[in-house]
C-alpha cells in the first residue's frame, strides 16, 4: 500500500500560510508516490476558504470544523489529529510556534518516530528516511536517519523547502464528524498584541542590527552612533531583548518583527533561522562577525571578519569623515 502522508496546514484570516506549499514540496521529497493529504482545522467560512485554497496543492484535503478549533489551541488540535490520522502515517508540521507546541506530543500519541526541524530530505531507503538537520543555531549540520516503519511526525523548517506550483485540484472531505472530545487542561484565553515601540523598524530603509557579539549593554553606544551616522535605525537579535538591553519592538525575527530595509547590517549576529526569517524583501546584507564560519556569512552579500567592538567605531568615524 502506498505510504500516507499528511500535512497540517497553518492559516490565518482565511488564508493558508506560505508553509502550506512548502509542506507539499517536503512530502514530494520524502516519497514522490505517496498519497498526500492536507489537514485543515478551524471553523466556518475561514476554514472553508483555506480548504479550497490548499486543494490546488494537495490531492486531498481533510476539513475538521469545530468551534473548539476556532483558535488553534495545540492541545485541542492534537486531540483532533489523533482522532483522524491512521496508524503508521507520516505527518508533516511546520517547525514554528504552533508546530513546536503541537508536534512532539502528537508523535507520542500517534506512537510514531519524531523528527524535529528537518531542513532537507536526503532520501528514503526502505523504512529509513535520511534527512538534514542543523545544530548549534546552524553552526553545523547533521545527517540523521529516522525509522518510519511505524510512521513519523516530522516538523519542517519554514523556508527550507521551495514550494512548487501545482494544480492538483484536490477534493475536500469533511471529517468533522469523526471529532471526539477536544477538551483539555489548557484553555485558550486571548492573544495579547505586541506593543509598538518608539521607532517602527518595519518601515526603516537602513537597519543597523546588533547581536550577542556586542557583549555588554554599555557597548550599545557604538551601535547607536553608527546608526545615527548612517541615517538608519537600530535593530537587534533576540538575546539583546531577552537581556532587556533593547525593547522588543527592535527585535528582528520569527518571534519579533519582519523588516524590509534596503540595507541590513548584521553586527555580531550568528544568523539563526529564527533571526534571518524576519529579514524580508531581499535587502543588501552586510555581516560583521569575528567567527569566519558564522552562518550569517552564507546569506550575507558582503562579509567582514572582525571584532565589532573595534571595527564599528572605526567605520562610524570613516563615514562621519566622508559626510564632512
Amino acid at each position: 500500500m502506498a505510504r500516507q502522508i499528511f500535512a497540517y496546514i497553518l492559516h490565518k484570516n482565511g488564508k493558508a500560510d506560505d508553509t502550506a506549499l512548502e509542506l507539499a514540496a517536503a512530502a514530494g521529497k520524502i516519497d514522490a508516490d505517496a498519497a498526500v493529504t492536507a489537514i485543515v482545522t478551524g471553523t466556518g467560512g475561514d476554514l472553508e476558504a483555506v480548504c479550497t485554497e490548499v486543494a490546488t496543492a494537495y490531492t486531498q484535503v481533510w476539513k475538521l470544523d469545530s468551534a473548539e478549533l476556532a483558535y488553534p489551541n495545540a492541545e485541542a488540535v492534537r486531540k483532533a489529529l489523533v482522532g483522524v490520522i491512521p496508524a503508521g502515517s507520516i505527518v508533516l508540521v511546520s517547525h514554528e510556534h504552533l508546530g513546536m507546541d503541537l508536534a512532539p506530543g502528537l508523535a507520542i500519541k500517534l506512537d510514531t518516530a519524531y523528527l524535529p526541524d528537518a531542513v532537507d530530505i536526503a532520501g528514503l531507503e526502505g523504512d529509513l528516511l535520511k534527512a538534514v538537520r542543523q545544530e548549534y543555531t546552524g553552526q553545523v549540520s547533521t545527517h540523521v536517519t529516522c525509522d518510519i516503519s511505524s510512521g513519523a511526525v516530522i516538523t519542517v523548517r519554514p523556508g527550507g523547502f521551495a514550494p512548487e506550483a501545482s494544480a492538483k485540484g484536490g477534493q475536500v472531505v469533511d471529517k468533522s464528524g469523526e471529532l471526539g472530545d477536544l477538551s483539555s487542561g489548557r484553555k485558550f484565553m486571548e492573544v495579547v498584541q505586541a506593543e509598538a515601540g518608539d521607532v517602527d523598524i518595519t518601515q526603516s530603509e537602513i537597519l543597523v542590527a546588533v547581536g550577542r557579539g556586542i557583549e555588554d549593554q554599555d557597548n550599545l553606544e557604538i551601535i547607536d552612533e553608527l546608526a545615527e551616522t548612517m541615517g538608519g535605525d537600530v535593530a537587534c537579535s533576540r538575546p539583546i531583548v531577552d537581556a532587556k538591553w533593547l525593547d522588543k519592538s527592535r527585535q528582528v525575527g520569527t518571534s519579533g518583527l519582519s523588516v524590509k530595509p534596503k540595507v541590513y547590517l548584521a553586527l555580531g549576529i550568528s544568523g539563526s533561522f529564527q533571526h534571518v526569517g524576519g529579514i524580508k524583501g531581499n535587502p543588501f546584507i552586510v555581516a560583521v562577525n569575528k567567527n569566519a564560519k558564522a552562518p550569517i556569512f552564507q546569506i550575507a552579500d558582503v562579509g567582514v571578519v572582525a571584532d565589532i567592538l573595534e571595527f564599528v567605531p572605526e567605520l562610524t568615524e570613516k563615514i562621519g569623515e566622508m559626510k564632512g
Binding site: 485558550f188 486571548e190 492573544v191 518571534s255 519579533g256 518583527l257
Partner: peptide
C-alpha cells in the same frame, strides 16, 4: 507566538 504577540492560556 509569531510577531512578538503573546497567547494567554
Amino acid at each position: 507566538i509569531a510577531g512578538g504577540n503573546q497567547e494567554m492560556n
